[in-house]
Each structure stands twice: as structure tokens, then as C-alpha cells.
Design a protein around this nucleic acid. Sequence first.
DNA 1: CCGGATCCGAATCGATACTG
DNA 2: CAGTATCGATTCGGATCCGG
Lengths: 226, 226
Amino acid sequence: MAARSYGQYDGVTTAVELIGERWALLIVRDLLVGPRRYTDLKQGLPRIPTNILSTRLKELQEGGVVRRAPLHGSGLVYELTPYGRALEPIVLALGRWGFRALGEPGEGDVVTPDALTMELRTAFRPQRAADLDVELRVGDVALRVIVRAGVLTVARLAPPAPPVGGSLPGGEASAVVVAGPGLRHLLGGVVTPAEALARGLVAIARGDDRILDAFAETFRIDPLPA
Amino acid sequence: MAARSYGQYDGVTTAVELIGERWALLIVRDLLVGPRRYTDLKQGLPRIPTNILSTRLKELQEGGVVRRAPLHGSGLVYELTPYGRALEPIVLALGRWGFRALGEPGEGDVVTPDALTMELRTAFRPQRAADLDVELRVGDVALRVIVRAGVLTVARLAPPAPPVGGSLPGGEASAVVVAGPGLRHLLGGVVTPAEALARGLVAIARGDDRILDAFAETFRIDPLPA
DNA sequence: CCGGATCCGAATCGATACTG
DNA sequence: CAGTATCGATTCGGATCCGG
């Protein structure tokens, strides 16, 4: 028996042995957004040592959670296996759970595009979803957030730069929402959209303020059900 | 920023910081069965170093996941806070996920009463549940498993010892099911109850063999939905 | 630039012993 | 019962280096 084994024979222990090592679940989180190259993962996890990333990817492959796939042309990507993709509801639920413990960001904490994408997915309420097409900016991350018929699509945008004329296929979002860490108060339902605007937690850089009502109704992580 | 921080600001990262350290989720797993004393936890996690158990309990308390409560009389117990209890569906889902990767037990692997209790909870299908009252023995763990009106109750029994006359309140179970690691094949639905009996994965030490049909219908972790 | 491998000090973990 | 203390074994983190 490996010295570092937990020495137990059950499903929870097996799960922890597969994805419980440091950084492993954050790698899975990013891969849930889509296949990623080694370098992409490294950028999405700025503080991960490269030897750890390398080791984890190997372990996740041995565990059947991740596989390598050749990238069309050159290079390769890591992607979740079907077994790994089965973690999606679990990671989303964990994200909701952890969200409720979010305080102020620590100094140096970052928000990455993939993390914000997953955060939106955790907060997404298909039953309540309004049709939506907004650009969401948090820090230097910009995402195009589209909801159509209860289906959420999130695309990464180039970091906010002075518009040069190049526009996305499909044109621009109907509104631009700019937020900081205070966005969590809106998602958490502890402030109304109007309050969030008044307190400067969120700003509408373009478009109608009322878009925020639809946004806040569509994305919410309610406090624990008593 | 702490040197060991992941340096990200989102729900998944926060969750991992709260319960992602080694052993933490196994502690939570056992506490989901019920409040436990320090010594109980140590027994339920035979390979955990006591300093780690001590450290984790402190961290889980700081994170608002666990709290200490005085035990009536003397001593104290650790129990989940409401926030910690909110992990239940997540731990159950993780248990189901990990279950599908279970192979043969490693040498020295053990099955503890709390782990087996949680395993049953992960496999429990309320919709399909038949009324049931059986004693389940795996290794030297013995559990009284009762299902009534779609509600599962699991109680720990003293390790299988020659009946001395002392009986549980409520009397004896209507059947005794004895199993080994091969039980996973029955729970996984890859063998029928009849096959499980024929191959010796499971034995009925007392009672009618047909109780196993009800058992296998009530407790199952199906393969991944394609 | 991509995809790592290597090296090394710092921190954590694991095992055992010990204590109020 | 409920932990601390100690100390060697591992792992992690940070930086650098290397082959395509």
C-alpha cells in the first residue's frame, strides 16, 4: 500500500484519491470550460508550479479523468474524459457552496476567465433565466454572456482594450456590465440591482440599467436554505 | 497572501481552501453520519496522524464547517455546522462518482462503519426503495439497515459476535447479508442478485435469499449515463 | 512559443512518543 | 479522552533550464 494512501475502501476515499490532491480540482474546473493546452492551464492557474501541473495532469490521466488529444495542426490539448466530465455537477455544487464563504479578495488574488465562467455557471438558474446578451467585465477579464431559451453560453473576450473596430461575429453585446468583487453581493442576493448600482458594486458602462435586473434574476446563488 | 494560497477569488477555490486539504473531506464524511468525538474520528480514520486530525479540526472550525459541542456529562463532540451539513449532497455525489472507479481493495484497506454507512447513503434510491430491515456485514463491520416508507436509517451494530442474548431495541433484522469487496458489483448493477449469490460475492446468512432482490433494487449506483 | 524536466529550499505530512 | 511534541520522509513552491 502506498505510504500516502488513505487506506480505506469506499467511494468517497476513491474520489479524494483521484481529485483530492492540491490543485487537481482547479485543473478540472478549468477543463470543464473546454479543452486547454498546457500553457493555457498554466496561465489560468498563475501560482501553480509547473512541475505540479505536470504531475497532476499525469495523475489525472492515470485516474481516467483527463486525456491528451492532439490539436489540429500542432500542439496538444488536455481534455476531460466522459468520466471526468461527470464531475461537472459536483464542481458546480462545490462552487456554490464555496461562494457562500467568499469574503473580500486577498491581496494578489486574481479572477481568471475560466474561473469567472464557471462562477457564472454555478450561479445560473435556467428556470429563471431571461434572454440576455451582455459583456461582463471583472478586473481585466471580459466575457460575453449570452442566454437564449434557458441556455447559457459564455465566451471569452480579449481584455478590455480601446475599441479598434474589430467586432465579434454576431456583433456587440447589448450592454456592458462592469463589476468588482462586490459582484458577489449581487449574485448572493443580499443587495438589489438598484442598490448594487447605487453603491458602485456594479456599473453599466453601456446599455440600459434595467439589464441588471434580468442579469441578477438569471444569476443568483441564494443563501443556505434554512 | 499566504504562500500556500491558490491566489484565486472564486467559489470553487474557496471551497477547495476550506475542505481540500488532505483528510478534510474524510472527516466531513464521517461527521455526516453524526457527531463524533476525537477518538471516534481517529478510529474511523485509522491512518490519520493525530496531529493532522487535530490541525484539520481546527481549520474546519475556523472555516465554519465544524464546531465543538460539549457532550452531555463529560467529553465533547465535533459536529457539522449547518454550513458544513450543506456539503452532504456534494459528498454523496462524490461518493457515487468515486464508486465507479473502485477496483479491488488495496492490501490493508479497511472499511469503517461510517464509510459503509455513507456508501449506503450514496447508493440509496428513495424512489425505488423497498421496505427493508437487514443486517449487513462487510469485513468486521455490521450495520442494521432499515428502510421504511422511502426513508433510510442505518445504525451501527457491535462487531459480529456470537449472540449472547442482548438484542437491539426492536429485535433482530429479518435477514443477515454478508458481503466482501464484491458487493460493489451488486451495487454497481453489473451482476444480478442471483449471480452475486452464485459467485459468492454476497451470502445470506439468515433469512430468505429473495431479500437480496429488494436490497439490490434499493441500493444501486448505476454506471455513467452515456 | 510550447511542453515540459530538473534542482533545491521551505513547508507539510506521517509516525511515534508523550502529556494534562 | 483529547490532544502536543518531535523528527525524519515527502511534497510543494519557485526558479531555472532544455528539447522541439
